[in-house]
Nucleic acid binder design. Structure first.
Lengths: 253, 253
DNA sequence: CCGAGGCATTGACGCTCATCAATGTGAACA
DNA sequence: TGTTCACATTGATGAGCGTCAATGCCTCGG
């Protein structure tokens, strides 16, 4: 009955979950954890998989354990835009709604601590503490989304690019990456140029030009398409047009 | 002890509240309503008042009963952007956070059903049903903000302007306006050109040019700076670049 | 009724960015 | 190892939009 992937959950209790202490589960009591163990199981999705599509019924929710998921909206004209990125410990899926408004797609290989949506909704009803934690998390997310919208709205492409690079440089510490580089200055952006461009509301061409400009200015060094070395963080912050405090707040999400 | 404005609340129970059935309060039991009555009171703010400023401690929350409130974020550079608009029945304020990330400013004269933040947080802890409703409302809001961000990100100014006009044409029915016009085709946008421009991520000049273009094309008629007659809704939808279904979903918020 | 000041509009100009097209690069495949 | 295909970069061009500046309009207060 259970697929191979399911075994991962049965082996280790939720308390061994690598993102447990940062996810909404951390509010759960011991009794609640036992229940969560029962209704959740690990699932893996490979890079490029559309986990759930816009307009479909949403039946699975959960926490991202590893990888990056993009949240995108397809307009009627056919052009779609990335409206959010989900990292490990972020909650996945849309509770209390019949129909998905956005598509969820695995940007990298993704491991998900998945639950049946209705099971989890029932669980939340029985555990107000966890629901309370969920509310707080969503309020924070709301602020972060608004903040990001303000950035993409009023800034030049260069400012957006610099902001994104800075945010990823801070977030990558939260990810489970094998960074064997000697310094912390290597930024890993697992998205393709097109995805980054969509997220920033620009085109791959303009994005590329700006990245090259930063490289020519010795602000970054391009190791390869998805890895950058941060040579001059101060200059990067200056290019972003934001104060360091603001950037750090955005990065902490 | 109570100011004059407070009397408004003491006169009528929450059940008489004009936005009761659309606000989060509608989930409250009778017993809970009595408590809400006790901790809430009506407050009025005149046009232009900064109700709570970014960075300040947030001490009041509540529901908007009448008027429009803008939510704005001031960047370090000084330029600020409107990241959201609040209409009657929308929840006001930021729960479970010490410091406000955005400023709340009254765009029109505003009537607020105000509560002390800590009182209301305590109330939510004692009434999981209402907190559940709050969570659902915030999840919807999150989708709406993401949707709006996608629009301002990838579209031309004309598309944004058309979208805004259409959304306001649908929302104005939700407002308590004295529209004495014979038809429903009068759209009231209570914001100044600068505010609209900030919200759309453009400038007053470009905004004005686009409005005039729509007027020259007989899509709208400019009654005055804040009132427009919708002559050709179909053309407006075409200019927005969105499908009618999408627009209606955005408008319903 | 008139003047003043804020707001909206209109015009001119330059720059950024999207678009189209071509070239370069890296990884997966046989 | 070569072929292929997707992806990234680079170049040229024009349109859209921000900026600065001037003018017009409305409202409020005297």
């Amino acid at each position: 009955m259970n697929s191979v992937a399911d075994v991962a959950c049965l082996c280790g209790k939720c308390t061994k979950c690598p993102v447990y202490n940062r996810s909404v589960c951390s509010a759960a009591s011991e009794e609640a954890m036992v229940q969560l163990d029962r209704i959740s199981h690990m699932r893996k999705f490979s890079r490029g998989t559309v986990i759930q599509a816009q307009g479909e019924a949403c039946d699975i929710v959960g926490n991202i354990v590893e990888g990056v998921v993009k949240l995108s909206s397809a307009s009627a004209n056919g052009d779609d835009h990335i409206v959010g990125l989900l990292f490990p410990s972020d909650f996945f899926g849309r509770l209390f709604s019949e129909e998905l408004q956005f598509s969820y797609e695995a940007v990298t290989d993704v491991t998900l601590c998945a639950m049946n949506k209705m099971d989890f909704e029932r669980f939340l009803g029985e555990h107000p503490d966890v629901e309370h934690e969920m509310l707080k998390a969503k309020l924070d997310e709301l602020d972060a989304v608004r903040e990001w919208a303000a950035i993409t709205n009023g800034h030049t492409t260069m400012q957006r690019v610099a902001t994104l690079l800075y945010v990823f440089s801070r977030r990558s510490k939260n990810q489970h990456l094998d960074i064997t580089a000697p310094t912390q200055l290597v930024v890993h952006v697992p998205l393709s140029r097109r995805d980054i461009a969509d997220y920033l509301g620009t085109t791959p061409e303009t994005l590329s030009r700006n990245i090259q400009t930063l490289a020519r200015g010795k602000v970054i060094r391009i190791i390869n398409a998805k890895h950058f070395e941060l040579l001059n963080p101060g200059e990067l912050i200056r290019h972003s047009g934001e104060s360091r405090a603001d950037l750090d707040r955005i990065a902490s999400h």
